[in-house]
C-alpha cells in the first residue's frame, strides 16, 4: 500500500530534493506551494521518477482558507498519511527593524500557518494510526541571536509546537520529527559568502530520510550543528548578550 505525502512549500530546493526521493520510492504526493508553474514542473519530475500519483495545490501560510482543499483531499486518500513542512520566510533583520509589521508575516509563514495546518491534519493521521510529520525548523530557533532573532523566534515557536505535537501524536503511532538545518546551499544563502558547516539540499534530504528510518525526534543537518548549538545554548546569558555570532 502506497503512502501519501503532503509537502508544504514543495518548490524550495530543500523540499525538491526530499520530494524526489519520495517519488523514487513510489509514494503518492500532494505538492503545495505558491508558484503554480514551478509546482507543475516539479510534479512532472516526480511522476517521471516513479511517484504513484501527484496532486498540486496552491497554499499561502498566511491564509488558512487555502488549507481547506488540501485537508479535504487528504481525507479522501487511502493508506498512511504523512506530511513534511518546508515553508518559512526570512527577511533581513534590518528590514524588520525598519518595518516591524513584517514580524506578523514571518511568524505566520514559519510558525502559526504550518501549526494551524498540522492541527487540522492531526486527527486524520491519528485516525489512521501511523505516518510521519517532518517539521523543518532551523538552528536559528535554538537561541535568539542579533542577526535574525525574529526568524529565530518563529522557528523556536514551531519547534516547541512540534515537541508538543510529538507528545500528542506519538501515543497514536504517528512519528513527529523536528529537523534543524544549519546553513544550506540554496537560493536563500546564495550570495552570502561562505557559511560555516554548510550542507547541500541533497544532504538535508538524506539526513531527513535517515532520521525517519531511525525514528529520530530531533535531527540536526549538518550533524555537527547538534554540537555547535549545544555549546551556543550553554553560553551564559550575561556573556551571550555581548556576543555577536
Amino acid at each position: 500500500m502506497s503512502e501519501t505525502w503532503i509537502i508544504l512549500g514543495a518548490s524550495s530546493s530543500m523540499a525538491r530534493n526530499f520530494v524526489r526521493k519520495l517519488a523514487e520510492e513510489g509514494n503518492s504526493l500532494v505538492l503545495t506551494g505558491r508558484d503554480k508553474d514551478d509546482l507543475a514542473r516539479l510534479s512532472a519530475d516526480c511522476l517521471a521518477r516513479g511517484a504513484a500519483s501527484c496532486a498540486n495545490f496552491p497554499i499561502d501560510a498566511r491564509d488558512a482558507n487555502s488549507f481547506t482543499p488540501i485537508i479535504k483531499h487528504a481525507g479522501l486518500t487511502e493508506g498512511m498519511l504523512s506530511c513534511a513542512v518546508f515553508i518559512g520566510s526570512m527577511p533581513d533583520q534590518s528590514e524588520i527593524d525598519a518595518d516591524p509589521s513584517l514580524i506578523d508575516g514571518v511568524i505566520a509563514d514559519s510558525f502559526t500557518g504550518p501549526a494551524r495546518f498540522l492541527q487540522l491534519l492531526a486527527p486524520l493521521m491519528e485516525e489512521r494510526g501511523g505516518g510521519t510529520v517532518v517539521g523543518v525548523g532551523s538552528v536559528a530557533g535554538d537561541r535568539g541571536r542579533l542577526g535574525n532573532y525574529v526568524y529565530g523566534a518563529a522557528k523556536a515557536g514551531f519547534a516547541t509546537y512540534l515537541s508538543g505535537l510529538r507528545n500528542r501524536m506519538g501515543r497514536e503511532g504517528v512519528h513527529v520529527m523536528t529537523v534543524k538545518p544549519g546553513p544550506v546551499d540554496t537560493a536563500m544563502t546564495w550570495g552570502l559568502g561562505k557559511q560555516p558547516f554548510m550542507t547541500t539540499p541533497e544532504g538535508v534530504a538524506d539526513d531527513i530520510l535517515k532520521g525517519m528510518r531511525k525514528k529520530r525526534n530531533i535531527v540536526y543537518t549538518a550533524g555537527i550543528w547538534r554540537l555547535v548549538m549545544f555549546v551556543i545554548r550553554n553560553i551564559p546569558e550575561p556573556i551571550f548578550k555581548k556576543m555577536s555570532i
Binding site: R16, D35, D37, D38, T186, A187
Partner: peptide, 8 residues
C-alpha cells in the same frame, strides 16, 4: 553568477 532555482 546567479543560480536560479526556478524558471520564473
Amino acid at each position: 553568477v546567479a543560480r536560479p532555482e526556478r524558471v520564473h
